[in-house]
Simulated scan of single mutants.
Amino acid sequence: MAAFGEGAGELLTLSYPKPLPMRLDRWLVAQRPEQSRARIQKFIEAGYVRVNGITGRAKTPLRLGDQVELWMPPPEPLPYLVAQEMPLDVLYEDAHLIVLNKPAGLTVHPAPGNRDGTLVNGLLHHCPDLPGIGGELRPGIVHRLDKDTTGCIVVAKSQEALVKLQVQIQKRIASRHYLGVVHGQPRADHGTVIGAIGRHPVDRKKYAVVCDASGRHACTHWSVQERLGDFALLRFQLDTGRTHQIRVHAAHIGHPIVGDPAYSRCRRLPVALPGQALHAVQLSLDHPISRERLVCEAPLPAAFERLLEQLRGRLR
């Protein structure tokens, strides 16, 4: 990486305005919501953040009036972050954003073990101006869906739209609703799960509700839409957006998502599912430029519909 302030990049100078102290990394994440906390911490570790002219650390406590300088060099080029033509189910699109209906089996962005064939690769072909918006591997990505979760996902097509949409997600101005088929039937008709989510203490590929400091606050509201014998169709609304949140919270209350390979009981189903029976059915948000309220809905996948038909048929 380049030295502080050298070459192309962006220098941001801010004054800490709060009377109570706060960790440097946490405050910077709030100021630059388009950057992940991990990326902000990498900037700090590389010496790209100064507090009152002195190189800062992630835990540096900020106090009223402290001057913070953040130098953000451009992301290093990634040869495998290439445009790839693929079919995209577009629910809404204009010059500032695009809302898609993501199919099962499609990863949102590249990762070390999955370098191409992702939604980002398809978006780069569809939207040539997308590179440079947001993180190095996640251009334009406002929020994510798990690989085998289907439905609504919004992608920003400008830096201004990205920042404003991510703020809406954080402040719950944007509303995300999911439909999921779960094992068993909840006793109540609705409820709320509040449980911090962190890495599973044994299986590090999974997440769990945890009670230690490693967990991050997570809140999921649910309501029963239909009772289907040994199963139920639930509608979920997220207050937070942690990794695997609905899947972890559903399993935590004893009603895991049907077809979930990580958190559900193995059981033969009447329909072969391409992934877990979890679908982001509705996304509501304020347009980042016009402020018009947009409500996008994604129809249920065919396999999800067939599952519901089979379960309803068993009740006749």
Rank of each mutant, 00 (worst) to 15 (best):
Ala218Lys: 10
His287Asp: 08
Thr150Phe: 01
Ser175Leu: 05
Pro128Cys: 00
Ile173Gln: 14
Leu179Pro: 00
Ala38Ile: 13
His183Cys: 05
Gly195His: 10
Phe231Gln: 00
Leu311Asn: 01
Thr107Gln: 04
Glu136Cys: 05
Gly229Cys: 01
Arg227Thr: 03
Gln41Thr: 13
Gly140Cys: 07
Gly56Ala: 15
Gly241Ala: 11
His96Trp: 13
Ile257Gly: 02
Leu238Phe: 02
Thr13Trp: 00
Gln159Tyr: 04
Ala30Phe: 02
Thr107Phe: 02
Pro21Arg: 10
Arg242Leu: 08
Gly135Leu: 13
Asn121Leu: 10
Thr60Val: 07
Pro261Ala: 08
Asp212Glu: 07
Leu300Tyr: 13
Asp89Ala: 14
Ile153Arg: 08
Pro61Cys: 10
His126Arg: 15
Ile257Gln: 05
Arg235Ala: 13
Leu100Val: 14
Ala232Phe: 01
Leu294Val: 12
Arg176Cys: 04
His200Leu: 09
Tyr263His: 12
Arg314Lys: 14
Ala250Pro: 09
Ala251Met: 00
Gln185Cys: 09
His252Lys: 00
Glu292Pro: 01
Arg312Lys: 15
Arg37Cys: 05
Lys18Leu: 14
Pro261His: 06
Ile257Asn: 00
His125Tyr: 15
Ile98Gln: 05
Asp89Lys: 07
Gln67His: 12
Glu226Ser: 01
Val68Ser: 07
Phe4Trp: 04
Gln185Tyr: 01
His255Val: 05
Pro270Tyr: 08
Gln166Phe: 00
Gly122Pro: 04
Arg293Leu: 02
Ser284Arg: 14
Gly9Leu: 10
Arg176Pro: 02
Ile133Leu: 08
Glu305Phe: 04
Trp222Val: 03
Val29Leu: 13
Ile98Met: 07
Arg314His: 05
Arg227Gly: 01
Gln225Ser: 05
Gly259Ala: 09
Ile133Val: 11
Thr55Phe: 12
Lys102Gly: 10
Gln31Leu: 04
Asp239Gly: 02
Phe231Ile: 02
Leu24His: 09
Ala3Gln: 12
Thr60Cys: 03
Val51Phe: 00
Leu88Ser: 06
His255Phe: 11
Arg144Gly: 12
Asp230Asn: 03
Val224Lys: 05
Val224Trp: 06
Met86Asp: 06
Lys164Cys: 00
Pro112Asn: 07
Gly113Phe: 04
Arg268Pro: 06
Lys102Arg: 03
Tyr16Arg: 14
Thr243Ala: 03
Ala250Arg: 08
Leu88Val: 06
Tyr48Asp: 12
Gly215Asn: 02
Asp260Thr: 02
Ile40Asp: 05
Gly47Val: 08
Ala188Tyr: 01
Thr13Phe: 00
Leu28Pro: 07
Val51Pro: 00
Ile194Thr: 14
Ile40Thr: 08
Met86Lys: 09
Gln31Ala: 11
Asp212Thr: 11
Leu91Lys: 08
Gly229Thr: 01
Gly135Thr: 08
Gly151Ala: 11
Ala277Phe: 03
Ile133Lys: 09
Gln310Lys: 12
Glu160Val: 15
Val120Cys: 11
Tyr92Asn: 11
Gly151Ser: 10
Phe4Thr: 03
Gly53Gln: 09
His279Cys: 00
Gln168Gly: 08
Arg291Gln: 15
Arg23Ala: 11
His183Leu: 13
Glu69Gly: 03
Leu88Lys: 05
Ile197Trp: 11
Leu300Asp: 02
Leu97Arg: 06
Gly113Cys: 08
His255Asp: 05
Leu14Ile: 06
Arg37Leu: 10
Ile257Arg: 07
Pro17Asp: 13
Ala174Ser: 15
Thr149Ala: 06
Val120Ile: 10
Tyr16Asp: 11
Val154Pro: 04
Leu300Pro: 01
Ala2Thr: 14
